[in-house]
């Protein structure tokens, strides 16, 4: 159970960073930490004590493998996370080009 709790602490750090910081790059970093924590949590739920990785090899009986379904779900989620990070970075670069800052409180003013 302590492993789940440590993973939750990692998630909370990412959430704090996303809510509290005002720099856009820091917000992207917080979202990245949240993503890592959630991916890790999925794999932790599927772990079996003293299990083997779900890859068969010839002349070997199937016994005591870890759960392959969370791994399959997380495999797609990792690549999607990278694409979403790139999209946020693109928007942040546009904001920097237009307003000259990464501060989210400074970008409310309207340029006519």
């Amino acid at each position: 159970m302590s492993v789940y709790f440590l993973c939750l602490v990692l998630f909370s750090i990412g959430l704090y960073c996303t809510l509290r910081k005002r720099n856009i790059i820091k917000i992207v970093i917080g979202l990245g930490i949240i993503e890592y924590a959630v991916n890790l949590f999925f794999v932790l739920v599927g772990y079996k004590m003293a299990g083997r990785s779900p890859i068969l090899s010839p002349n070997q009986a199937i016994e005591n493998m870890v759960d392959p379904i969370p791994q399959a779900l997380v495999l797609t989620a990792i690549v999607i996370g990278l694409a979403v990070t790139a999209l946020i970075v693109a928007i942040a670069l546009r904001i920097y080009e237009k307003y000259g800052t990464f501060d989210i409180t400074k970008i409310k003013r309207l340029h006519g």
Binding site: L82, A83, A86, V89, A90, L93
Partner: peptide, 8 residues
């Protein structure tokens, strides 16, 4: 991913 990187 390559085209994303080139665009950025």
């Amino acid at each position: 991913l390559f085209s994303i990187f080139v665009t950025l």
